[in-house]
Design a protein around this nucleic acid. Sequence first.
DNA 1: CTTGTAATCAACTAGTTGGTTGATCAACTA
DNA 2: TAGTTGATCAACCAACTAGTTGATTACAAG
Lengths: 128, 128
Amino acid sequence: MPHQDPLDAALLDRAFMALADPVRRNIVARLSHGDATVNELAEPFAITKQAVSKHIQVLEQAGLVTRSRDAQRRPVHLDAAALERLTAWIDQYRLQAEGRYRRLDALLESQASERIPKSAPTPRSGEQ
Amino acid sequence: MPHQDPLDAALLDRAFMALADPVRRNIVARLSHGDATVNELAEPFAITKQAVSKHIQVLEQAGLVTRSRDAQRRPVHLDAAALERLTAWIDQYRLQAEGRYRRLDALLESQASERIPKSAPTPRSGEQ
DNA sequence: CTTGTAATCAACTAGTTGGTTGATCAACTA
DNA sequence: TAGTTGATCAACCAACTAGTTGATTACAAG
């Protein structure tokens, strides 16, 4: 089953978009070794806390982070399962493409040595 | 060594941004089982081939696809290695976060059963 | 109640993007 | 030569985005 729910399409949009920003990737990196608050995340960057808050909203709506409540503090938590879903999506097509490449490679090799492949390993890569 | 070249930052920007669009993800999906031309890729979508050409340029500048030359045709080819680089980036932080979670989980479990952990498995997850 | 801190909301500016149409280029065909 | 197909370039528009500043909510402490 190569496809998942189409409901995930919008979520994938937001997830990849969220990671397409160096500031947000830095936030992810920082969260990977511990929860943090908006202020803690804002310090290393030359942008205001409001901007960081927006970045976190983007990550949250992408399902990449969650937030809890601890008095005034709202620590941000990285959701490893969400990251795993992204790699799963990519790998689904990466492995497909790699498989094709290896089959073609094997075909060319067997042809170069003038040995006939057993049963035509679906070499439909040419666009005629 | 958790980090790679900072040269990759702009490329990561473009790669994630490229995948943050459903049309481009569909193009990737289609390319995963075979090279294709602009016109072939444009057919299933309700957009012009000019738009598809732009999408492919985005994917190309992100290093996700390459193009060759075959008479007038310029078949687009999906680069599996580029996809692998993306999953490597994500996994780098996913595994870090998962490791933290599992250490905390193991700590709580050992405490619940009132058994003392052998040597305090670095439970620095609380933000006090 | 008042002060202080953490975080968000609201409005605005400046810049970017996705898509369109129309023209152009490159290679094949007659 | 003209005509066709595949693909790109150029200009433009509507929509969206990141960042700013200023006001506002929520909570804790004096």
